[in-house]
Each structure stands twice: as structure tokens, then as C-alpha cells.
Amino acid sequence: MLVREWASREGLNPQTVWKWCREGKMPVPVEHTATGMWLIHDSKYEPQSTHVASGRTVCYARVSSGDQKDDLQRQADRLKAFALAMGMDDVQVVSEVGSGMNERRRKLNQLLADATVGTIIVEHRDRLARLNFGLIESALTAQNRRIIVVDDREVDDDLVCDMTEILTSFCARLYGRRAAKHKAQAALQAAQDA
């Protein structure tokens, strides 16, 4: 689990916990990742394995462009921390750079085709796919596999969510994939202002 979460549960200041991590004074096991993130492994807060689906557990991290590589590593670290907090063992992390609108993402396609992968963990729904997340989820469920979304907050209004997806798709074709999200947001803002 992350330092802030552990500090909150223990009633401590996060700065104190980070200091203890750096000085090696933590009363529980800690892990220092390559990106500088501290992961705390406290058995009283990490539930025993609730892993239902059989097979391997894979964390899938994705960013849209190469200039977001630092974000990609941080996303992968958060996913691994989440999986460990759920009590999952031997977690593999797969990272990929590519558009969420592109169905030709090699690593994702390999994960979806690999029947030995029982659980795929993603940070947000759009990290897996911008469109048709539900179809992918249904297909995996039919194979006794599952997707876990760490942060599953969504827009409450389904119509707004559908409209955003459609606008993003159209803008991607018209303006290029990178500018699509910004153009879709601008179109939604203009519609709200009208």
C-alpha cells in the first residue's frame, strides 16, 4: 500500500512515515521502487488472497505517447501496489505506449489472447480501451477471467459518457489521435455553455 494510505490508517503524518522509510526504521516491510515510490507491506491491512479467477495476474499500464514514460512507470508501480495489497502473488506488470483508440496494441492483444491470464488489473477503464470496455469485460467473463479497475469512478450520466466517447472517436479521425481528447472536451464545454 502507499505511504499516505498506511499513514492515514495508522494515524501518522505521511512525512514521518517517509522519513522512517528512508532511515530504515519502519516497523513493517517496505519496498523502494525504481521510480522512488515507497510501498508498505503491512499484513494487518493486506487481505489474504481474494483471488477468484484462476491463472496469472497481470497489471496493464498504458499511456498515449512516448513523452509520458515517467507517468507510465508510476502507473505501473501503483498497479503493482494495489495487486500486492489484494494479496495476489507473482504479479506481472505489462506496460505499453499507444492510443486507447487503437485496437492494434500488440501487448494488450497478447494479454487478451493468453488463456493463462486469469486477472487483468488496470488503473482506469480508459487505460484498457477508450471504447467498448464493457464488451471486453463480457468476453473475459465468459472465459472465467476478470478485469479489475482500480479507480472505477465514472460520469453518472450514461448519455454524457456515450457522447464523450463518440466525440472522441470522431475528433480522433478528424484531428489526429493526440488532439482528439482536447477537441472532444472543447466540444462538450461548448455544448454545456450553449
Rank of each mutant, 00 (worst) to 15 (best):
N132W: 05
A191M: 15
A34P: 10
F170K: 14
I121Q: 05
K80M: 12
D90W: 14
E5A: 12
V149W: 01
R22Q: 08
M163N: 11
A53H: 04
T141E: 14
V150W: 05
V117H: 02
A113C: 09
Q75I: 05
E96S: 02
E5D: 13
N132C: 10
A61G: 09
L174R: 09
G36N: 00
L135C: 12
R4Y: 11
E103N: 15
C161Y: 10
I40H: 00
V122T: 00
A186Y: 07
L84E: 09
H51S: 10
R145L: 05
T33R: 06
I120N: 00
S49I: 11
N102K: 10
E165K: 08
Y60R: 00
L84F: 09
S64L: 10
M88D: 08
G24V: 01
R22N: 11
T16L: 13
Q185P: 04
I136N: 02
V3Y: 02
G100K: 00
C21Y: 05
S169D: 13
F170D: 11
C21D: 02
R104G: 09
I120H: 00
Q185D: 09
L159M: 11
D71H: 07
H41Y: 10
R127F: 02
V149P: 03
A180R: 00
F82W: 04
L159C: 08
D151N: 15
Q92N: 14
M37E: 10
R56C: 05
K19Y: 14
A115T: 15
G36C: 10
V150K: 05
T164N: 13
G36P: 02
R130E: 02
A184R: 06
E165V: 12
H51W: 15
E23S: 08
Y175F: 13
T164C: 08
G176A: 05
R78W: 13
R153T: 12
D114I: 05
S169N: 12
A139Q: 13
Q185E: 15
R78G: 03
R4P: 13
L140N: 01
R145H: 04
Q192I: 15
S43K: 12
R62K: 03
Q15T: 13
T35R: 14
Q110W: 14
R125C: 03
A180W: 02
R130F: 00
L108R: 04
N102G: 04
R145M: 08
D89S: 15
C21T: 03
